[in-house]
Design a protein around this nucleic acid. Structure first.
Lengths: 220, 220
DNA sequence: AGATTTATTTTGACTATTCAAAATAGGTCG
DNA sequence: CGACCTATTTTGAATAGTCAAAATAAATCT
């Protein structure tokens, strides 16, 4: 069995590689895992030995098929647990990430399946992040963000790509949850600001950085 | 924070000490934890350094007040998780122990409280084992067993003190769940056998060893 | 008491994971 | 081209937890 350290390395490689194909630089991985780069080199070599990744020295890491399988399973656990914590235990959107970070390594596939059924086989978690299927399929649709979308068209929030409690708290407070309807009224690249009008509530101004974390699609 | 290894040591010391007061022999602890005795000596010394236990060399270990607090919290997590797995996820009585063994170290106090509320603040888990309260109170009532109770009186099963899947499976199959009504029709110490008659279902013969694991109280 | 059995402790070694700091390989830029 | 910068790797050391096997203490049994 993979230890939770191994599971974490694989999960973060997956997350950093847009689906598991690209080479992830060692430095980026070290940053994501909050360890020094030397540690990553050591661990990645052992991950390569166990067949979970391919290591290109001085270039980066890539998941093997097996590594991808494990990583997707961990991600599935993470996101289903988050969904459970929010939908069933009514926990706060913003805090469930840290909880799930622990539980994802402790939950068995059996419990996972039952949780999945209890929740009605959701396809996204409370932040709109896609939940990999049991078979390891994951929605990889590319969405526009509030920083890149067309102006003055009706939009629907599909996902918030940021897991820090502060940002999620802020988003929640301002009605930026998946499903929310809104439109961008103005975008000023020079000032780095985006103005947003929600169907309900007062207008909102976001930095481009913040706007880039809100994924949207055209309202149907 | 206590690592899960530390939590496990403390939990097993609690379990082996009838409430945390008696000295637990090192060998018994090694056996319970499935490690060699030398490992227990090493770990217990470090547990003593951190103030979780008192170590009496060549005699055994005892929990400190702080160690007891941690141990009761872990036990509470274990038993609430088991209750959740059975009552909500409808998992099998016999298999939840192993699952809870993992989850008890991954679940936060916050999640624990919400789980407790969701389950309606249960006082026992599905096996009848008492769940410590948030404040660390635990029911320590002493019950008779099918091996020691009076014969030919109406009884009610309150608890099965055995967590192996095989035994629980057997108990379940034979209607020996907490709450079941029955009486002992005969006890033959020489042969080591106990005959039991349930209100419903056919008579049952148990070994004294098995009977000793079924705790009962007079039917009201 | 002396010998023996049994439980516990000690010693030395190993695995997994990490860090700090020095060494090195690839670029890049003037 | 050669100096320089940056990312990566190496090296040496630390911590947590474990085992195997030898040493020791305590208890028991003639």
């Amino acid at each position: 069995m993979a230890t939770s350290t191994v599971e974490n390395y694989l999960k973060h490689i997956l997350l950093l590689s847009e689906g598991g194909e690209e080479l992830v630089p060692m430095g980026a991985l070290a940053e994501a895992l909050a360890v020094v780069p030397g540690t990553v080199t050591t661990m990645v070599k052992s991950l390569a030995d166990s067949g979970h990744v391919e290591h290109r020295p001085r270039q980066g890491v890539r998941l093997s098929a097996e590594g991808r399988r494990v990583a997707l399973n961990v991600l599935r656990k993470h996101r289903l647990v988050e969904t459970f914590l929010v939908n069933v235990l009514k926990m706060d959107w913003a805090t469930v990430h840290a909880e799930a970070e622990q539980l994802e390594h402790a939950i068995s596939d059996e419990v996972l399946d039952r949780l999945d059924a209890l929740l009605g086989h959701p396809t996204t978690d409370p932040h709109g992040d896609p939940i990999p299927s049991r078979q390891g399929k994951i929605d990889s649709q590319v969405y526009a963000t509030l920083a890149t979308c067309v102006v003055e068209k009706g939009l629907r929030v599909v996902r918030i790509t940021e897991q820090s409690a502060e940002f999620l708290q802020f988003a929640d407070l301002n009605g930026l949850q998946p499903g929310a309807s809104l439109r961008v009224t103005e975008r000023n690249l020079a000032a780095g600001l985006v103005s947003v009008k929600k169907t309900t509530g007062r207008p909102l101004i976001l930095s481009l950085a913040a706007a880039g974390k809100i994924l949207v699609q055209p309202a149907r």
